[in-house]
């Protein structure tokens, strides 16, 4: 983005982020404004001298479905940790839109502020039913006392049912989440993400351990989400990435190695070297 454009974007006064409103409506998330929703600039994180992220710079556009690939240790998970406030970088800037400095917020604020994350290992609440899992994730007043007295409104029920349908678990609504199959758990996770009503979804290895059928269903789910949400998918499975990706970023040793469409990236000699050289 050019300097001028960036300045102009910064100076806009008409823009109010809808996540700042207490309870944004499920259907109102389409944002027509252009430009990145996520800015990651010059971010460095190191553990005991090992640089997990090395001046990483990355932009994700609003409504985009971005796939991030890279060999083990490339810094994919650490990047997500930084964005969601779990890890503090030593240097760099992370902005959500143009106005929100994510480095100043903590994990909970970021989570309730519009960035949802699905972890690598599916962690649903095993002892809660599918419906309860979705209820817990739902965007609502999450302070203690209101939660104690909370009752599901008809409208909230509607949203949960809608999500159940999207992830195809309507029949299992009252089943304990621990009894779901691996694939179903992953979808439930995505469903929980949706209930949070996030502007940006970070999805870590959604198809690990899935059957082909489940993978197709997941691909459908994720592509369906893009547009309404910005989605960042970290994945190892190349075939899956190819099936959903429009834009691919390759990370290597903590920084961006290549960026482009799947075909461009696959033919990039640097990428070939990294993948084949190992």
């Amino acid at each position: 983005m050019s300097m001028l454009e960036q300045t102009r974007e910064t100076m806009r006064r008409d823009r109010v982020f809808d996540w700042m409103m207490p309870s944004a409506d499920f259907s109102q998330r389409l944002d027509t404004s252009h430009g990145p929703i996520l800015y990651v600039e010059d971010v460095t994180v190191s553990f005991d001298g090992f640089r997990a992220l090395d001046e990483l710079t990355l932009y994700v556009d609003d409504g985009e479905l971005r796939c991030i690939i890279g060999p083990n240790g490339a810094g994919k998970t650490t990047m997500m940790d930084v964005i969601t406030g779990r890890t503090r970088p030593e240097q760099g800037r992370v902005w959500f839109g143009q106005r929100i400095d994510l480095l100043r917020l903590d994990e909970t604020e970021i989570a309730s502020g519009g960035i949802g994350r699905k972890f690598q290992k599916p962690t649903v609440f095993q002892n809660h039913s599918v419906l309860e899992n979705l209820e817990l994730a739902m965007a609502a007043d999450k302070r203690v006392w209101p939660t104690l007295l909370a009752r599901l409104s008809g409208e909230q029920r509607g949203r949960i049912e809608e999500a159940l349908e999207t992830i195809g678990l309507t029949a299992e609504a009252y089943q304990a989440a621990g009894q779901l199959s691996h694939g179903q758990k992953q979808w439930l996770e995505i469903g929980m993400l949706l209930m949070q009503n996030p502007r940006l979804l970070l999805v870590d290895e959604p198809v690990a351990g899935m059957t082909h059928q489940e993978m197709d269903r997941t691909a459908e789910l994720l592509t369906g989400l893009a547009g309404k949400h910005s989605v960042v998918v970290v994945e190892h499975d190349m075939e899956f990435v190819r099936s959903i990706a429009r834009q691919v970023t390759v990370l290597h040793q903590g920084s961006v190695l290549a960026e482009g469409t799947m075909d461009q990236v696959q033919n990039d000699p640097k990428v070939v070297e990294v993948y084949l050289g190992e």
Partner: peptide, 14 residues
């Protein structure tokens, strides 16, 4: 009790 980090990540002040 079952998955504390997950609760935090969906926006509750654990």
């Amino acid at each position: 009790r079952d998955a504390e980090p997950r609760v935090r990540s969906i926006g509750y002040r654990v």
